[in-house]
Amino acid sequence: MDFSVINDNIEFLMLGLMRSFQLAFFTIILSLIIACFIAIGRVSSRRSIRYPSAIFVNLLRSNPLILIVFWFFFLVPLITGKTLPEFHTVLIAFVVFFAAYFAEIVRSGIQSVGSSQVKAALSTGLTYSQSMRLIVLPQALRNMLPALVTECVIVFQGTTIAYVIGMREFLHSTSLVAERTVRPVELYLFAAFVYLVICFAGTRLALFLEKK
């Protein structure tokens, strides 16, 4: 094995890694915002809100991310009438997909707060939205923080799927160098190591938050 091939191509590889980070970052921010609305919709007492949110979440959660990406690559040009840059198309697919997962985390955070808390809040004269905002969500946020961090790690791992449609994220850059230099062993081991270090840091953070 000759790991100097990594060093020779480090700039190209790091460019890919940056692209992976970008995709993960924007996915997390945008899908988390959407997720909060959907989660509140999921625990709403109104059926007209609860059912559509449940359908959205279950529809996406029962499909693999890779299939959702294929769907959006077919649908986005069909709907908009033009081809968006692949980064944008992938981002849209990722945001829609992960919003469903984040929504479930936020929902289970809300539901982890004891029902007596809601009853107590309502009995002091707070409205439903006030008791959600002031009593339930702050406690829910604390409870769901570890799961949120874990999901962020999953989003970062998920960025590898952009490989399939040829976006130059880290795995794709790795495979390009592997093909050109005919050194797949070194390159894929390196990629695995990089992902391992980053995701290990993330899961340790989640564990630390869980213990706190």
Partner: peptide, 18 residues
């Protein structure tokens, strides 16, 4: 820690190519 923190796609490539 090893199998959870390496993305599945990378693991598949390791088993397939490496």
């Amino acid at each position: 820690e090893i199998f959870r923190n390496i993305p599945l796609l990378v693991q598949l490539f390791l088993w397939f190519f490496v």
